[in-house]
Amino acid sequence: MPVSADYVARETATNLWRNRLMTIAAVLTVAVSLALVGAALLLKQGAANAEVEWQRGTQVTVWVNPGAGASETKAIGTQLAQLPIVHSCSFYTKAQDFAEAKKILTPSVFSALTLSSTPPSFRCTPSQPQDAQAVINRFRGQPGVYQVTAPIQSIHAMEKTITVLQWVFVGVALVLLLSAAVLILNTIRMAIFARRREVSVMKLVGATNWFIRLPFMSEGLIQGLIGSLLAAGLVFVLHVVLNYYGNPSNPGAVLTQMRMSGWNVFGTDAVVIIMGVLIGSAGSAAAIRRFLDV
């Protein structure tokens, strides 16, 4: 026997209204937990985008010993130019580096530096981002070389922070998702209890099991769906805010490097909505299995 959609819609709406406080609690918990899941997913994609940006711009700086002679400096330059894994290099004199240091260092640190103690440097771009480490290994400890640096370590540190953050988000989200499922289960349980007379009459007059179950199933599903739509909205707002602050006019900012495309958000929202529907269905299915005796 087909179950009329009109009947299911009417019964579901009645149940949701009857248990509206519990419904609101369940919907909000689903929304918050899924928004966290969405934020974690978005962050992961942003981090992936930023990593590409960072690696593309990876520079290896070969600092020449401040006391090195011109010939020694020239030899380092020649070696760098001949190395196939190095794409290009530009030479910064002591004066240029001193001026730069004045800009980026705090006054107290900078005061310890003098022009004569400032090392000149070669700023090199590797042919491939992953060649940076090879360039470092090749020049570290070479005569006349003071130090070789690349922002690889700080990139790794940043990635680590983002990964930890993601897991914290996912962990919190999992706990919240579980409580959302339990809340939905409880709402359905209350709905079943509120309608126990009707259910017993329905069984008596020969309503099919699916006819009895369906309004309760759809109730949980709708709670999950509404919660996930709210979460999807929050994820979209987060995306808009992040992209607003990650302005293209400020290419150095982390948020700019993390800029996410519309597809990133669309995909995340799709995952969030599917999860919401699944949680709603799982919560109500568990309640029906446990508390609805048909």
Binding site: M202, V205, F211
Partner: peptide, 21 residues
């Protein structure tokens, strides 16, 4: 009796037909 208290006489009787489609 097992009637549904929030439904009218007509609705109580109609319920038996509605739930079997």
């Amino acid at each position: 009796f097992r009637l549904l208290p929030n439904k009218t006489v007509f609705q109580n009787v109609a319920f038996a037909l509605e739930v079997i489609g």
